[in-house]
Simulated assay, not measured.
Amino acid sequence: MDVRAYTPTREQYVYTFGGAAPALRVKPGEALRLWSDDAFGGALQSVDDLSAAKVDLRFVNPQTGPFYVEGAQPGDTLALHLVALEPAREWGASAAIPFFGGMTSTDRTVSLQAALPDTTWIYELDRARRTVAFAARHSDHRIELPLEPMLGTVGVAPAGNEVRSSLVPERFGGNMDTPQMRAGATVFLGVNVEGALFSIGDGHYRQGEGEACGTAVEGAMTTTLIVELIKGAAPAWPRIEDDTHWMAIGSSRPMEDSWRIANAEMVHWIGQLYGLHPIDAYQLVSQVAQVPVANVVDANYSVVVKVAKALLPDAHAFGGIHDDLRARARRL
């Protein structure tokens, strides 16, 4: 299988889902190798670079795309299989940004407290050891952490001709910031407009669940993925399948509504997979679900509800396309 490469110029970066002309037209079944910049657009390169001076929040999370998928129509399901995610730089950056994050006053959670100090951390990448190094700013502590690449943003154009910031997660996907979005996973997104117009970006070299300070180890990424299209059967909210779990993602505020969305999606999905009455599926999911929090910092909060495949009988979602894509990925 051939792999088609695309690297945007800075002028081709897109900062929204919806509202942008397609960068490329792709066919279902094609494999793409896509370069994406970090959330800061490379603006933070040393600990002396501070977000207040270097980062304009109107232009963060630059997207690579959008890509027009031939044959995609509203109501279809776009399947993107993440074959490989590889850091494209030797360093990643993280930051405490004034009035942004889960443990500070924000524009929505307002108090009279001053902003937390504007601070930048640079994580050095060791490719041979597959680690990134945390270096404390106020002591000599240095801790090697495992490299765990993921994508913060994967999404399609929203419905109704909406144009949404690349900071927003919603039913179209977007800035979900879940560590579950990693190599080996297949994400399923409902198509809202002709061509789907999907984009990716916001690579993270690693991130804790919740992304508490508002930023992960942000880094440029080279992503290899396979594009597929399933006619009809669009999920209402993003779903992910990997070799071990079924997952659904809800994004809203307050956080319990995010959980309710994802939990309802999982109840519906398990019911479909196993032919269960909704009340039986509800009972089953109640006993087997895990609920990692993806982020508590974005315009909406994202919560994942996941079920381990090993706990349930064999089943095949969307005609078993995940297993097929895994097999195709091994041939790349």
Rank of each mutant, 00 (worst) to 15 (best):
A133T: 15
A133D: 05
F134P: 00
F134G: 00
F134A: 03
F134S: 04
A135R: 15
A135M: 08
A135Y: 06
A135E: 11
A135I: 11
A135S: 14
A136M: 13
A136D: 14
A136Y: 12
R137K: 15
R137F: 11
R137D: 08
R137S: 14
R137V: 02
H138L: 13
H138R: 12
H138K: 07
H138F: 10
S139Q: 07
S139E: 06
S139V: 15
S139A: 08
S139R: 12
S139K: 09
D140Q: 09
D140L: 12
H141D: 12
R142P: 10
R142G: 14
R142Q: 15
R142N: 08
R142E: 14
I143P: 05
I143T: 10
I143M: 10
E144M: 12
E144L: 15
E144N: 10
L145W: 05
L145I: 07
L145G: 01
P146L: 11
P146H: 02
P146F: 03
P146A: 15
L147N: 02
L147S: 02
L147H: 03
E148R: 13
E148T: 13
E148Q: 13
P149N: 09
P149Y: 04
P149F: 03
P149Q: 09
P149H: 07
P149K: 05
M150I: 04
M150R: 03
M150K: 00
M150Y: 00
M150H: 03
M150N: 02
M150F: 07
M150D: 02
L151E: 03
L151W: 10
G152T: 08
G152C: 11
G152F: 01
G152P: 04
G152R: 04
G152L: 04
G152S: 10
T153G: 06
T153L: 14
T153I: 14
T153C: 13
V154E: 00
V154L: 15
G155D: 01
G155Q: 02
G155R: 00
G155W: 01
G155C: 09
G155K: 03
V156Y: 00
A157V: 01
A157D: 01
A157N: 03
P158V: 02
P158T: 06
P158W: 01
P158D: 04
A159H: 02
A159I: 01
A159C: 09
A159L: 06
A159E: 08
G160Y: 12
G160W: 08
G160D: 10
N161D: 10
N161Y: 09
N161C: 04
V163N: 07
V163W: 15
V163K: 15
V163T: 15
R164D: 03
R164A: 10
R164T: 05
S165G: 03
S165W: 08
S165I: 05
S165L: 12
S165H: 08
S165R: 15
S166V: 04
S166F: 09
S166T: 05
S166Q: 14
L167K: 15
L167E: 11
L167T: 12
L167F: 05
L167S: 06
L167I: 04
V168P: 01
V168D: 02
V168M: 07
V168N: 02
V168Q: 05
P169H: 00
P169L: 02
P169I: 01
E170C: 11
E170Y: 05
E170M: 09
E170T: 07
E170A: 07
E170I: 00
E170F: 03
E170L: 06
E170K: 07
R171P: 06
R171I: 08
R171G: 03
